[in-house]
């Protein structure tokens, strides 16, 4: 095994071009487990820790460019306003020690359906900035990124440099079910973002299908229902029947399996409950914001 320690992004791309099977390692929270237990023996480990820019973020007008290695702890601490859904998701990741090391780039690279960041990225809307020495940089829409169980749209010579995540224009929520009150892998997870600017809602579901998915039918239903009743403008409550229909459609968007962490039936049910609750929380928050603004004006 060789340990490659590129000092710059360009060196990293060159190394990846030369050794397409090299395994990138940043926080190490996935890769080292596989190495410690002998499940993976790559010829080359490609250490990204020395590339300082990967741990940095920039907040632009519409989106945040989040370096691939920005640790979850930094997202929780610094990006709660811009990326509330991802900040909440970050808070559910494993333990404080893991949150100090792991970042979104690793979640995307591994592309496990149980990765905690995925539902938040899907709900907020994001693009993955991938780059290769040969073809330069490209942006992969998050909806096209996950291609199968632990598979993604990256080419073998590509590395993830950053994720561009839409800044929140409305309330976002994130919820995850595990059988322990901390340090637990998701049985399933749900992210929801209200986008008042476009009068849309977006969702993300984790661990309930071969890949992280959006509940698009549920989104369309809710978009139409909100529009029809003028709720974005009048700020009235969402009726229980609309909330329940949305929850049912989210549950229906799942394609879960039975495994040692939970049954398919439970996952469907839990996604529905989380969908209904997060909708209530975000919508009440949206109504509260509107009221506050009205009062202020």
């Amino acid at each position: 095994m060789d340990f490659l320690r590129p000092a710059s992004w360009e060196e990293a791309l060159a190394a990846k071009a030369e050794h397409p099977a090299a395994v990138p390692i940043a926080g190490g929270t996935d890769v080292m487990v596989e190495i410690n237990f002998g499940h993976r023996r790559p010829d080359h480990l490609l250490d990204l820790n020395r590339i300082g820019e990967l741990a940095e973020w920039e907040s632009g007008a519409d989106s945040v460019r989040l370096g691939a290695s920005v640790p979850y702890a930094a997202i929780m601490e610094n990006l709660r306003a811009e990326l509330p859904g991802l900040a909440l998701a970050s808070h559910t990741v494993a333990s404080p020690q893991i949150r100090n090391r792991g970042g979104v780039g690793g979640n995307l690279g591994t592309a496990s359906p149980a990765g905690d960041a995925h539902p938040a990225l899907l709900a907020a809307g994001a693009e993955v900035e991938a780059e290769s020495a040969a073809r330069g940089s490209r942006r992969i829409p998050i909806d096209d990124f996950y291609t199968g169980v632990k598979r993604n749209a990256l080419a073998p010579d590509e590395l993830i440099r950053a994720v561009h995540i839409k800044k929140a224009d409305g309330p976002q929520q994130y919820s995850k079910v595990g059988t322990r009150n901390a340090m637990v892998i998701a049985v399933c997870a749900f992210g929801l973002a209200l986008h008042p600017a476009t009068r849309t809602v977006r969702t993300g579901i984790g661990s309930a299908a071969p890949t992280p998915v959006r509940a698009k039918t549920a989104e369309e239903f809710l978009n139409a229902a909100l529009e029809e009743d003028g709720l974005w403008d009048n700020g009235e409550t969402i009726t229980p029947s609309v909330a329940q229909r949305f929850a049912d459609l989210c549950a229906a968007a799942c394609n879960p399996i039975d495994d040692v962490r939970g049954t398919a039936g439970y996952r469907r049910r839990a996604v529905g409950v989380m969908a209904r609750r997060t909708l209530t929380w975000t919508w009440e928050s949206y109504r509260g914001t509107r009221r506050t603004l009205k009062g202020a004006a």
Partner: peptide, 16 residues
């Protein structure tokens, strides 16, 4: 949420 079922996973704010 740390004192509720689900803990840090933010599954309930008292509902249920």
């Amino acid at each position: 949420v740390r004192q509720l079922p689900g803990g840090l996973s933010n599954t309930t704010h008292g509902e249920g």
